[in-house]
Nucleic acid binder design. Sequence first.
DNA 1: CCATAGATTTCGCCT
DNA 2: AGGCGAAGTCTATGG
Lengths: 231, 231
Amino acid sequence: MRLVIATCSVDYAGRLTAHLPLAKRLLVVKGDGSLLVHSDGGSYKPLNWMSPPCTLSIIEPDEDQRAAGVTEVWKVTHTKTADMLIVSIREIELDSTHDLGIDPGLQKDGVEAHLQKLLAEQIHLLGDGHTLVRREYMTAIGPVDILARDAGGASVAVELKRRGDIDGVEQLTRYLELMNRDPLLAPVTGVFAAQEIKPQARTLAEDRGIRCLVLDYDEMRGIDDGKARLF
Amino acid sequence: MRLVIATCSVDYAGRLTAHLPLAKRLLVVKGDGSLLVHSDGGSYKPLNWMSPPCTLSIIEPDEDQRAAGVTEVWKVTHTKTADMLIVSIREIELDSTHDLGIDPGLQKDGVEAHLQKLLAEQIHLLGDGHTLVRREYMTAIGPVDILARDAGGASVAVELKRRGDIDGVEQLTRYLELMNRDPLLAPVTGVFAAQEIKPQARTLAEDRGIRCLVLDYDEMRGIDDGKARLF
DNA sequence: CCATAGATTTCGCCT
DNA sequence: AGGCGAAGTCTATGG
């Protein structure tokens, strides 16, 4: 990612034509070549941008542009639609490049995380007498969302999903298989909990002796009134 | 505007709850206190953000957070809705503040300007035998978007709008009234051209003998292939 | 000032 | 992959 603060003017030609007059702005060049032009206000939407896939090429300003004080011209062209963004740069105040790596978590798993927190707090939803052992119980093949004990003290592994699909059942199955080899834990039963469980997933789960639990997010949230207590 | 590149985790609680695990990201603090959290990919939409009006306060990490390597915690709270964004910062790689001033803003007339250019080039859209006199024909009360002549040599004044509304008809009416007093131009007929003409505007226009012309921007652009020739 | 429609929408889910 | 609907939508317009 490259960050540039510069006085610039911007022209866009694509689905519409637009022009940004000369001003100091933030230019963000992302790793995929996409470009954002931000001002010091407004919302998260840039003044102008080019979405990936696109390519940025830096071209030399012509005579007129150079005479007008333009030192650099960025041409960003969209790979498919041929939309074009021209950034005419005059003065550069900051030019800083950073390697961010790939981001782990654009995931809107916020709901799942919240569900996990709520279910941990309302562990009775698993059944009377259940107690929480811990969230994110670590195993060799990854963390189990929730580990609990039932009224009889037997281990219960819970896999949580917003939408309960086959994949989730398979995941839980792998955990159960592994955990049941651990004499300290075994026998471990499984609960597949989700806001919505697909019929196929339910069939597969029940066929494997995994209990299915449909969660009412709104109700759980209402009881918990979770907003305030997250921090 | 303050730019920070830092490894951080982000929690949002508001209309939904969301969590971004630890990673290196770009934090943009705008002049109005709003915050954007960007990764090195995706589109122009940030991973997370807080819209104005909001306030950012930097709070000291507690014992646990400090032990976990957190050096700074940013708390951004929305002024009205009480949405909250918590940024837990570990390592800061860049911290750069810049005064951008107010942005003159996006020129919204880009489409109208483009339409004018296209219609001038495709003046036959006014009707067979029409010829262009000039764009932005100046009168005492302002410039007429396009002045043309019909097949018989009579003057035609064109008012262009993206969305054809009553106001545009009134504007053209004033031009026509003025121009028809000029013996060198009179008689001048009017054409009200727009991508979309409101029924009320159409009624008013036709009642005054003004012809309405709906323009197909995409088609005009396709014929012109205007993208390449803008620069 | 509030409702409504459009967006260079973006984003995710589903067929 | 294409289509549809929601979004922490944002943005402008109309009333």
